[in-house]
Every structure is written in structure tokens, then in C-alpha cells.
Write a protein that binds this DNA or RNA. Structure first.
Length: 479
RNA sequence: GGCGCGUUCGUCUAGCGGCCUAAGACGCCACCCUUUCAAGGUGGAGAUCACGGGUUCGAAUCCCGUACGCGUCACCA
């Protein structure tokens, strides 16, 4: 179902890590939902944790998004172009809103040291008070005016949200339906840290409101922090967005998809030879299904048929094997010239290798239905560039046969796959050798490998002279 | 541990009270094609719909409990 005006966003953190495939999944759904409704898809860099900040990681995150074709629509002006929103550039805003909450009594200053908080937690744990919560010492100790004045004198302080007690907080998750929490279980969240930076909870609510985000689409792990944010929306008197919590991608053992058990960086998939479109298509199959049961469809088609209501709440296992199959389907669906370009670009970008364009063009038809990933190209076609240095079959027992082959092939003037083929089949017959065995010897002699693209065509591409020279080498080769 | 969310073939999914003696895809197995490897074609194995109670003439589908899994409980996001 289409919505009249939709604004979505993703909020990556520049911590130095590459973009996680789970984040790409979230980005995809946000992107698609915005596109479907002619809305806007926004990127907001959440760099409020200075201890984890790693310089330059925004650029990498943005590059990841670009590589997969998920471009964002809006952002602050940066000299003609627009960049993503960045929270560290909006500190005054968060502070202003935090102080507003203090002023209206929805939040308060807290001067407790990290040490006291740690001790408090430890003590509570010992007394089996669950969950451990801040004891509101500072709220009881200081009046609003006293606290404000201490803060203005520069006493290190945080601002905490005063969570109401014994209140049931309900919200609708667009995928799961009604979810409710008891507010008494929620700690008085820190909104503004002592370094003046906001915490996630404050920044996300302020920004989502200011940026008019009306669909908060994020991973399931955020469900339990949603009530805190709802309380903030209410304290400000702002209208709530709709919440959509996406299932989390899983390892085969069903734990949350992690780098220890799976390749998770989106750049890894590219380097491994997966196509961005195939990865996106595969991701779309996670928790979602095409209404007509199709498994292979473009981003454009996804946008057309996508509906949040069709998303499952179940955390799906990420299956690399199925992704490989899908990638193979995408490769086979390409035209030869397209595939040629992809292969050339791929080896250039990731291996700094300049492949001869004509040679790639000639070999592409031979391997198109054999490769699943761009990286498989080299497995099949390496021998076009390099002579074999070893042989996967012992050729010693076949010396006489090889000599015979050289003899016969030398006479061939019309060096085409068909001619080579019929000549060799005749020879095999004359020698009384099963064709399968015969061609295996020839195959290994020419390529070094037992698994290759079609032999006759390969030999045509290599050329008569090169083939004869290789056969001579095979003849001389010992062991 | 508290709270929250989830549970259909090994995996991804279809299913939204009768069409389900549960369908498709990946993977697996067999056969066909075949000069290796693929691709393609045909067929097959594979889920008592987690379990136990209800509701109903009738439940994979609705309700409740149990088990299991996952998530979350920071001046991290």
C-alpha cells in the first residue's frame, strides 16, 4: 500500500568498521520504501561517541552505499552538492532541547561520577534488584535552580530523562503489531553526556523529528529502546513516527550475523565477485517474498511490489550458497559485452590487474554459464594468460599420443574450433581411444587443468602456434 | 535473571479457518544432454506446520500455556 508522503533514514555510526551487511539490508528497505512512495531517503551520520570515532569512516560508509546504488536524496548544502546530515555538527540543537526538558521538569541534571554509578550498579546486582537503575540521587539532592546553577558553573553533569513510573507504554510495530512495556523497568536515560554530546536516544528523536522522518525503519534490536524514545516524543509533544523493526540476519547457528562466523562487510561481497544487484536481490528475499513468488527481480521491480506488510518477523539465516546461485543467474542474464566490462572492471579495481579487453571478450561466451562470481573467471581462464607450470594429470604415459597430436595438428591450416574438433575426434578413433580420455589428455596438455572452458574453442582463441608450443612443452615436461 | 520478540522441509519462503493427504526456490540425490566443468531438462528424498491445551462442524492459520531460539538491559549506537 502506498503512503502519501514518506521520509526514511539510515543512521550509520563512523566507528571505523566497514558497513555491515545487516546495515545494507536496513538501508535497502528504507530506500525502497521511500522510493515506492515518492518520498525521501536520508543518511544521517551518528557520530556522537567520540571514543569510538574513526576519521574517514563516513566516506567509506558513503562509498559502500554508492557501490550498491542506494543513493540518498537530501542533506545540508556543501558547496553546490549536498552531504549527509552529521550529528556532531548539530550539538547546539541537542543541548537546547535537553535543557528545555530540564526546564519543563521532564529531565534533570545528574552529577554522579562514573565510579559511583558503577558501585551502585554492582550493589543493586548483589541485592538482586532488577533491572539495575539509577537511584535518582541528584534529583532528590538538588533543586532545579541549584542544579542549573552548578551546571552553569561548569560542574560536570549529564542530563537524564525522568522516566515516569508504573506506566504502560504501547506502540505499534508495523511488522509485529502491538508491543508494550512497563515504564518502571526503564532506567533514567542519559540524554546529554558530560562532554556535551547527546546520547543516541536524544539525538535520534530530535533529528528524526526535525527531519520529519515518519517511518523509522531499523533492526529488531532497537525494539526495547523504542519506549524510551516514545517517552521523549511525548515529553516534547511531538508526533510519533511509525516504527518498523526489521528482522536481524542470522548466522547458520541462528545467532545474530557476526563477523566471527560469516563474512559481513559489504565491501567483502564486492571483492569476492558478487554483483551489487544480486546482493540486493538476495537481501530482498530475507524476510520478504515477491507476491508472485518470483525469486529474481530488479530493484525497480522490488520498489513496485514491496510492502512492509509482507515482511516476516522471523530472523532469517543468511545463506551464502543461495546468494552464489542468484549471482550466477545475474551473470547469465547479462549480455556478453556487459559481462566483459564487469570482469575487466572487477580485476582492475580489486586486483589492480589490466586484462586484455579483446581476450576477455573472446573468452566470455565460454565461461558465462560456468561462473557464479566474477572471481571465478580467473579459475577458468587463467591459462589464456599464462602457460601451465604444472599439470593436473600425469602426461608421462601419453608421450606418444601427444607427439601424434602435434603431428596431426601441424597440418591443420584452417584453425577453427570445428576443424580442431573433428580432426581430434578422428585421431582419437584412429588411435582407438575413448574420446573422453583423449580430450582430457589434450586438455591438460594445453591448459594444465582438468576443468576448463570448452577445449576446441579455447584452442581456437589461443591460436595454432601457441597450442603447438604448449604441446611441445607438455611433451618435454617430466613428472 | 527481568523484559521483549520469534518458532512451516537443512536453508529462504508460500500459506492469513475449509482448495493443505502443506506449494515454490537454494542445496542434496538420480537420470537425460555431454569432450572436462558448468548451464539446461526430467524425476526424487526432505516439514506429524516446536510441544501441550483450548475455540470451532472444521486450525499451519485464532486464544492460552510450556519448551527452545534470538534480542535487550551503558555518559555505545
Amino acid at each position: 500500500m502506498a503512503e502519501p508522503y514518506v521520509r526514511t533514514r539510515i543512521a550509520p555510526s563512523p566507528t571505523g568498521e566497514e558497513m555491515h551487511i545487516g546495515n545494507l539490508y536496513t538501508a535497502l528497505i528504507n530506500f525502497v520504501w521511500a522510493r515506492k512512495n515518492q518520498g525521501k531517503f536520508i543518511v544521517r551520520i551518528e557520530d556522537t561517541d567520540r571514543t569510538r570515532y574513526v576519521q574517514g569512516s563516513e566516506q567509506r560508509l558513503l562509498q559502500n552505499l554508492k557501490d550498491y546504488g542506494l543513493d540518498y536524496d537530501e542533506g545540508p548544502d556543501i558547496g553546490g552538492d549536498y552531504g549527509p546530515y552529521t550529528q556532531s555538527e548539530r550539538l547546539d540543537l541537542y543541548k537546547k532541547y535537553a535543557l528545555q526538558l530540564v526546564e519543563q521538569g521532564s529531565a534533570y541534571f545528574c552529577f554522579c561520577s562514573q565510579q559511583r554509578l558503577a558501585e551502585l550498579r554492582q550493589q543493586q546486582r548483589k541485592q538482586k534488584i532488577i533491572p539495575p537503575k539509577y537511584d535518582r540521587y541528584c534529583l532528590r539532592q538538588y533543586s532545579k535552580e541549584q542544579a542549573l546553577s552548578l551546571y552553569q558553573q561548569g560542574k560536570p553533569a549529564v542530563v537524564r530523562l525522568k522516566i515516569p513510573q508504573n506506566q504502560s507504554i504501547e506502540f505499534i510495530d508495523e511488522i509485529r503489531g502491538k508491543i508494550s512495556f512497563d515504564s518502571s523497568l526503564i532506567d533514567d536515560q542519559v540524554l546529554l553526556k558530560s562532554d556535551g554530546f547527546p546520547t543516541y536516544h536524544l539525538a535520534v528523536v530530535v533529528d528524526d523529528h526535525l527531519m520529519k522522518i515518519n517511518y523509522v525503519i531499523r533492526a529488531e534490536e532497537w525494539i526495547s529502546s523504542t519506549p524510551k524514545q516514545i517517552l521523549l516524543y511525548k515529553a516534547f509533544g511531538w508526533q510519533l513516527p511509525k516504527f518498523v523493526h526489521l528482522p536481524v540476519l542470522r548466522n547458520p547457528d541462528r545467532s545474530k550475523l557476526s563477523k566471527r562466523k560469516n563474512p559481513v562487510w559489504v565491501s567483502w561481497y564486492l571483492k569476492e565477485g558478487f554483483l551489487p544487484e544480486a546482493v540486493l536481490n538476495y537481501l530482498a528475499l530475507m524476510g520478504f517474498s515477491h507476491p508472485e513468488g518470483k525469486e529474481i527481480f530488479s530493484l525497480q521491480e522490488l520498489i513496485k511490489v514491496f510492502d512492509i506488510a509482507r515482511i516476516n518477523p522471523v530472523g532469517p539465516v543468511f545463506d551464502l550458497v543461495k546468494l552464489e546461485w542468484l549471482n550466477g543467474e545475474y551473470i547469465r542474464a547479462m549480455t556478453d559485452p556487459e559481462l566483459k566490462e564487469k570482469i575487466i572492471q572487477y580485476y582492475n579495481r580489486f586486483f589492480n590487474k589490466q586484462l586484455d579487453k579483446d581476450l576477455v571478450a573472446k573468452t566470455v561466451p565460454l565461461i558465462k554459464e560456468r561462473i557464479k562470481k566474477l572471481s571465478d573467471y580467473w579459475f577458468y581462464c587463467r591459462f589464456f594468460w599464462e602457460r601451465p607450470i604444472s599439470y593436473q594429470l600425469n602426461l608421462q604415459p601419453h608421450q606418444e599420443l601427444l607427439a601424434r597430436i602435434i603431428e596431426v595438428l601441424s597440418t591443420l591450416s584452417n584453425w577453427t574450433a570445428d576443424e580442431i574438433g573433428s580432426l581430434m575426434v578422428n585421431l582419437a578413433k584412429k588411435q582407438g581411444i575413448v574420446t573422453g580420455k583423449f580430450f582430457m589428455v589434450l586438455r591438460v596438455a594445453i591448459t594444465g587443468q582438468k576443468i576448463t572452458p570448452p577445449l576446441n574453442e579455447s584452442m581456437e582463441i589461443l591460436g595454432k602456434q601457441e597450442c603447438l608450443e604448449r604441446l611441445q612443452l607438455a611433451l618435454k615436461h617430466k613428472g
